[in-house]
Amino acid sequence: MIYQVISQYNYIAAVILFFIGLYTMISRKNLIKKIIGLNIMDTSVFLFFISMGSVEGGKAPIIVLGSENVIYVNPLPQALILTAIVVAVSVTAFALALTVKLYGDYGTLDADKIRELREEPG
């Protein structure tokens, strides 16, 4: 039982990373740290997908003439994660752009202070 759990260390790492990321997103007040937390969370999902499709001793899944009997890793999770990385990059870029704007408006990166400043009239 314990051996089974330990042998799936990749998933355990993904779960730990996921919760580190989620915790950072929820507990930190600083917007940049929240974005970093989001990225850690995304990375954990990437790790989960990639390790799911990996095969021990597997090669990159590209067919070259005369290599039909090679073991390949599963290319599908990799393709999915490439797309997910693009999405994560876009989300991060947009979040950073918003953070720049918020800093310009309020002069702080603290989410609580921003809320206080916003609720002040004028």
């Binding site: 997103m25 979040a95 918020l102 408006d105 916003r118």
Partner: peptide
């Protein structure tokens, strides 16, 4: 911007 950030979050 704050509304957008929260939505994004």
């Amino acid at each position: 911007f704050e509304a957008s950030f929260r939505y994004l979050y």
